[in-house]
Design a protein around this nucleic acid. Structure first.
Length: 706
RNA sequence: GCGCGAUUAGCUCAGUUGGUAGAGCAACUCAUUUACACUGAGAAGGUCGGGGGUUCAAGUCCCUCAUCGCGCACCA
């Protein structure tokens, strides 16, 4: 057989990748039902192997982390498909509620517009169009990586069936007593005008001034004087000898910001006697801990700062001032004039919670929101781990998970944003004392108005394994649930993984976990080991890397040396090194194709030599490693074998004496190498396979039997 | 403060259940129309962070200290 012309030049990925992916897609084999149709003997009675892919946010481009994510799953998935499992990998995208809205708000800002005051439906429509356009870009990039995902099952979190299903879950949970409405302190971002879950805030160390003021005989320390207008309780520890003359509920009058004020003594054990003077005032509306105390003793709670971060009526002449800047300054001035300022420590460093998107300090507010009662759900999720129903590839994450599930905090799922799934709750006299609500999809008739809030995005993505399979009862659900693998970034150990377990268990009456194995990969860092970010300008686009070095090279670079859970550095040098490897494979194939042909078919069963033994041993190891999710070992073994055994030893040895038997052996070994390499480097291997395969063999390596 | 992880060759990292230290990259020496220069051959390079313990045997298990990184929670 004449050597195809293309082998006379180095491998050029740009000439083959698109057409290979097209061939693979058109084969239909990304859809498991088609595997059964085409190869019933292999797939009809085989096990299903399913993984639900984490939906990339439909609001931007793919970053290096996504590329790793897709590559790891695709390597494992392709391996299992070749091993006769009915592999189903479901792609999707997430509307990413708050994330996307923030991105869109920035866009609006640039255009000199603002979401506030915008018509709700119009804003939703605009973000929808924006997201749908981006969604296709992202899907295109996932395909570029070679993901053998079943696109016929592509799911978007705002597809009608998902929206309805997610709302059904809320209704079911409400009826089961797992959802309640409560006025509680929530994390309020005054810039984005929405409440946030505890996981959507982050901590920032700040240096502020710490003030000590005098209230009667008490010395009160605070870094937030501007919240103190409504304070009228002094809280001390019951065993604090300094205040033993007071009893619970004693009152006294003292000069305060706006004049003489009546204070009441509260004694509570939560007070740290060592801190300052062991006495504090409380601001229940704007502090979680204070709220707990106020609730315990049924104390008055007053709002001081409004949702825009400005002082309210209670601040008298200071009303309308931005609380933490001008409001604080003026409050201190007033207290200083009255001679109540005792001390100012300007170097007080403390950690304050801030919005994870804009770093605006969180202003706790009391608001009526929907909460999920986490304790009973977390208990089941904890059991799933302790009983071994879910398995973590690295045990460190089990510890984190179990700690988290042992200390659950109720989850605020209301978001005051437009972009998301509406909460199926209807109100009469909302926000008043006579508020009534009704839970259901449709207006019960009359004066009811639907809650304008949307769900926290994790309320829907937490149901992803169930939702992508059409929810409980659907055919797909019956066939493919529970899934085998959840592979995602280790940063999602809190936000996403436990919630999927919780929803998966809950929706199956606590019978079935959503997935068995949990593999969490680390972050992809820049060559210096730093986090990639737009502001640092060190972002490496996977698509651009693939343009330069080829996707197979990038896939190898992402997999080799990547231990589960550990971060890794990505560098051009690394990708370049694997481009060389891809080309090495290309040249090996050139040699074999040049010197052998289809006549040289070889039956391995009649010859047993050292080379073949080694090959089979390597193949077995690679398979075992992949099954154990040790892709770094599998890929290294492959690399080493192909280059330093097959090329450097076998070919060098055999080429001196190209007997028919040797030719046949080379051809056989090349096919085996292509098989082993295919999960890692699907493009180049398919391309070579099309030249080396025999008439009786499968057209695509994608479905070649391992 | 609590938790998790890391510390192995110049750099980036592997090292399965304890059994004589590995790879890639870089650097060094040699080879030069070879299937492939996106190459080959060779040599060099490490008291596995410090200290202690268990063991016939420790990079690996236990304790402790140090440094770095990450996560979570916080005191008004």
């Amino acid at each position: 057989m004449a050597l195809p012309e293309k082998y006379k030049s180095p491998y050029d990925a740009s000439l083959v990748e698109e057409s290979i992916y097209k061939k693979e897609t058109e084969s239909g084999f990304f859809t498991p039902e088609n595997l059964v149709k085409a190869y019933p003997s292999r797939y009809e009675k085989s096990e299903a192997w399913t993984t639900i892919t984490p939906p990339p946010n439909a609001n931007g481009h793919l970053h290096a982390g996504h590329a790793l994510d897709v590559t790891l799953k695709d390597v494992i998935g392709r391996f299992h498909r070749m091993n006769n499992k009915r592999v189903l990998m479901i792609p999707g995208s997430d509307h990413a509620g708050f994330e996307t809205q923030v991105v869109y708000e920035k866009k609006l800002e640039k255009e000199g517009r603002s979401r506030f005051g915008m018509d709700r439906d119009l804003l939703y429509k605009e973000i929808y169009d924006f997201t749908i356009a981006n969604k296709d870009t992202v899907a295109g990039e996932v395909k570029r990586i070679g993901a053998s995902y079943d696109w016929s099952r592509d799911t978007f979190t705002l597809d009608a069936k998902v929206v309805t299903g997610v709302q059904d879950t809320f209704i079911k949970m409400y009826n089961d007593g797992l959802i309640y409405r409560s006025k509680r302190d929530v994390n309020w971002c005054s810039k984005h005008q929405t409440s946030l879950s505890d996981l959507e805030t982050t901590n920032k160390e700040m240096t502020d001034t710490f003030y000590t003021f005098k209230i009667g005989e008490f010395l009160i320390g605070t870094s937030r004087p501007e919240t103190k207008f409504g304070d009228k309780y002094i809280v001390v520890h019951p065993e604090d000898a300094r205040y033993s003359k007071y009893t619970q509920g004693d009152t006294f009058e003292a000069e305060w910001i706006l004049g003489p004020t009546k204070f009441t003594i509260i004694k509570d054990e939560s007070i740290d006697m060592e801190f300052g003077t062991g006495a504090m005032t409380i601001t229940p509306w704007h502090s979680g801990i204070d709220f707990q105390i106020a609730k315990k003793y049924n104390l008055d709670m007053v709002q001081v700062i409004d949702e825009n971060g400005k002082l309210m009526d209670i601040a008298g002449e200071l009303k309308g001032l931005r609380a933490i800047t001008e409001g604080r300054k003026r409050t201190v001035e007033i207290l200083e004039q009255k001679g109540l300022l005792v001390e100012k420590n300007e170097k007080y460093t403390h950690v304050v919670p801030v919005c994870y998107k804009c770093e605006t300090p969180i202003e706790p507010q009391l608001k009526d929101q929907w909460f999920v009662k986490m304790a009973p759900l977390a208990e089941k999720a904890l059991e799933a781990s302790t009983k071994g129903e879910i398995d973590f590839v690295t045990d460190q994450f089990r510890k984190t998970y179990e700690y988290w599930m042992s200390n659950p905090i109720d989850w605020n799922i209301s978001r005051q944003i437009v972009w998301g799934i509406r909460i199926p709750a209807w109100f009469k006299n909302k926000g008043t004392d006579t508020e009534e609500y009704y839970i259901g999809h449709d207006n019960p008739g009359g004066e009811w108005i639907q809650d304008i809030d949307t769900f926290d995005t994790w309320f829907s993505s937490g149901q992803w394994p169930v939702a992508t399979l059409g929810f409980v009862g659907a055919d797909d659900f019956k066939t493919y649930y529970p899934t085998q693998l959840m592979e995602t970034g280790r940063d999602l150990i809190f936000k996403w993984v436990p919630r999927m377990v919780i929803f998966g268990l809950y929706l199956t009456d606590y019978k079935q976990v959503p997935f068995k194995d949990i593999y969490l990969h680390g972050m992809v860092l820049d060559p210096k080991g730093q986090k990639m970010s737009k502001s640092k300008g060190n972002v490496m686009s996977p698509i651009e890397l693939a343009d330069e070095f080829g996707m197979d090279a990038l896939r190898m670079a992402l997999v080799v040396g990547t231990t589960p859970g550990s971060d890794q550095s990505m560098s051009k040098d690394k990708v370049r090194a694997y481009k060389k490897f891809v080309n090495k494979l290309w040249n090996i194939s050139r040699f074999v194709l040049e010197n052998t042909d289809n006549e040289n078919e070889w039956d391995k069963s009649i010859i047993d030599n050292e080379y073949i033994n080694k090959l089979e041993n390597v193949k077995m190891n690679i398979g075992l490693y992949i099954e154990k999710y040790q892709l770094h070992l599998a890929s290294e073994e492959l690399y080493h074998y192909v280059w330093h055994e097959f090329a450097d030893v076998v070919i060098e040895d055999v080429k001196k004496d190209l007997t028919d038997a040797n030719k046949a052996m080379l051809r056989y070994m090349l096919k085996e190498i292509l098989t082993m390499a295919h999960p890692f480097m699907p493009f180049v291997t398919e391309e070579i396979w099309s030249d080396v395969r025999n008439d009786g063999e499968v057209e695509l390596l994608l479905v070649k039997e391992w």
